[in-house]
Design a protein around this nucleic acid. Structure first.
Length: 562
DNA sequence: GCCGTTTTCGGCCCGACTGTTTTCAGTCG
């Protein structure tokens, strides 16, 4: 059994926590496991060393019992407690609590009163009316659950992009270890950087492709398309899709007397020399088209290519400006976060912890805001003395209150370098009210960035109802950047709206919303979807260098004070 | 399950909304 890394152990601790909760355990014990998982994810050192040196107990929130569990999970991949819970708490119950509006208490009640322990049984109980009559439920509750069920069913079998990446990289590594394999590349929706992925596929080139397995990766979930090296480009192109993109390429090929398939590009059955994807595009009189853009949305159109220009890339980002620290619900200190951003080679870091209304997340009351400002100033003083310039900006992720106001008085707001305004409550407002609320927050002169525009949680919760056209137009009008929240659970603003946002004249800001130093690297997912949305670097707020970014913030302040 | 000069028990980030058990438990962020 291989030694499990901190992240995998953290997932197992979360699983133990979730199953304990569903066996009626104390919520505090449950939280202890969740907390332990967070601690592991924020770990600076490799887990193996801590286990060997018996240093786990030195970590905050890890005591005797958790240290034992973590050690055993790390060494053996499992633990008797986990095994027992897997027997006692059915997987279906875990899926039930994932439904919005259905927590552990109600799920347990469903199991005890109605014998419901999976989604199918729940659906039957909704349809035959027994749920509506059950104690603690109602016709309205049943209707809501029916809707939630539909959402979950539609996402069945799909994975978020980061989870797909993890499985694909394991599968690719397995294949690269096979004899005679020359090239391996993930394909499909994951390569197109779609926010969720249905089918997992890798393309492998080998001298004897017939010898490669048809499936690979954990649980053999990844389909393997094995081809001869000469066909790699064509196979990769076809397996990457989208179907529409490939069909359009094929139509173009046909006009030139060519045919495109997984076996290659052919003329009258004879192969045309085109070993790489770029060669195939060239043979069809096209420039290379980035995988992210291959959605059949006009990317083959020369006009479209000209208008699009260069796509933003990881290296274009100069700073990271929406992160959390231990001041609110982050796992790392302000200084650790700043240092981690500096270590990424960036020029500036913006802290934007939760504002005071977000009690659940330890939102900052005014006195903590002041203290944080002092710490930011002290850090900047220190950084100013160093050779490589680095800046920390003091921001806040202000809740947008139900009436559209921000979460502090103007005089407090005026002391921040910038404000990310986000909705964290009352998701259920109707579209007109939600839109008006958000537009009002955008129009506040303190607002710099609109956080996660729809509040969606991929595969878990739909976004709130909002008229994005109006919201984006308001952002353009007031000079507020629209966040592309890079967290793989969000990827919000949806890439399908990026071009429209730019058209209306809004800027975008690619933010990881990191709650620990590890999550900083998730910013790459935001870059990926921004590329998919056709975003160029010169429309990305945090692609400005530190000076230009500061100038932008100062100009907004000046305008406010007038 | 963790933590602690208020330490071996009794707390544990908290405030708001929701629906309906009609006075508050459950859920959410």
């Amino acid at each position: 059994m291989p030694l499990l890394d901190a992240y995998t152990v953290a997932d197992l601790l979360d699983e133990i926590g979730a199953r304990l909760e569903l066996s009626g355990e104390s919520p505090f014990k449950v939280r202890a496991y969740q907390n332990g998982a967070e601690v592991l994810r924020a770990l600076k050192l490799p887990l193996a060393g801590l286990v060997e040196d018996r240093k786990l107990k030195a970590l905050p929130g890890i005591g005797e019992a958790l240290a034992e569990k973590i050690s055993k999970l790390h060494r053996t991949g499992s633990h008797p407690l986990l095994e027992r819970l897997r027997e006692e708490v059915p997987d279906g119950l875990l899926r039930l609590v994932a439904l919005p509006g259905l927590g552990p208490k109600k799920a347990l009640r469903l199991r005890e009163d109605l014998g419901i322990d999976d989604l199918d049984a729940l659906e039957r109980a909704i349809d035959d009316g027994s749920l509506a009559k059950a104690k603690g439920f109602s016709a309205k509750a049943a209707e809501k659950l029916k809707h939630a069920l539909g959402f979950v069913r539609a996402s069945a079998g799909r994975l978020r992009l980061n989870d797909a990446d993890a499985l694909l990289s394991v599968a690719a590594a397995e294949l690269r270890a096979q004899p005679g394999v020359t090239q391996v590349w993930p394909a499909g929706e994951a390569r197109r950087r779609c926010e969720t992925v249905g089918e997992l596929c890798v393309v492998a080139a080998a001298d004897r492709p017939e010898r490669l397995p048809a499936k690979a990766g954990p649980g053999e979930r990844v389909r393997v398309l094995a081809v001869k090296p000469g066909c790699f480009g064509a196979a990769l192109l076809c397996a990457t899709g989208s179907e529409k993109h490939v069909a359009e390429l094929n139509a173009r090929a046909k006009k030139e007397g060519l045919a495109l398939s997984e076996d290659g590009l052919t003329r009258k059955g004879k192969a045309v020399a085109a070993p790489a994807e770029a060669d195939i595009y060239e043979s069809l009189g096209l420039p290379y088209i980035e995988p992210e853009l291959r959605e059949g949305r006009g990317e083959l159109d020369a006009k479209d290519q000209k208008a699009r220009g260069k796509l933003v890339a990881d290296a274009d980002l100069k700073g990271i400006v929406h992160c959390h620290s231990t001041y609110s619900d982050g796992a790392n200190t302000l200084e650790q976060m700043a240092e981690a951003v500096r270590a990424m080679g960036l020029q500036y870091f913006g802290i934007a912890d939760h504002s005071k209304s977000a009690g659940y997340a330890g939102g900052l009351k005014e006195d903590r805001v002041k203290r944080q400002r002092e710490e930011v100033d002290a850090l900047n003083e220190r950084y100013a003395k160093e050779k490589a310039p680095f800046r920390v900006f003091h921001g806040i992720e202000s809740d947008i209150r139900e009436d559209g106001s921000l979460d502090y008085d103007d005089e407090v707001l005026a002391n921040f370098d910038y404000v990310v305004a986000s909705v964290h409550s009352r998701f259920d407002l109707d579209e007109a009210a939600q839109t008006a609320r958000i537009v009002k927050a955008i129009s506040h002169p303190a607002t710099t960035i609109l956080g996660h525009a729809t509040g969606r949680l991929l595969l878990r919760r739909e976004g709130y109802k909002v008229d994005l056209e109006q919201v984006l137009a308001a952002c353009a009008k007031h000079g507020v950047a629209v966040e592309v929240n890079a967290h793989p659970v969000r990827l919000d603003l949806d890439w399908r709206w990026h071009a429209r946002a730019l058209e209306l004249g809004a800027w975008l800001s690619i933010n990881p919303d990191a709650h620990n130093t590890e999550e900083l690297k998730l910013v790459a997912y935001g870059v990926a979807v921004a590329r998919k949305g056709g975003v160029p670097p010169d429309k990305v707020l945090n692609a400005l260098d530190a000076k230009a970014f500061e100038k932008h913030l100062l100009a907004r302040r000046k305008r406010w004070k007038k």
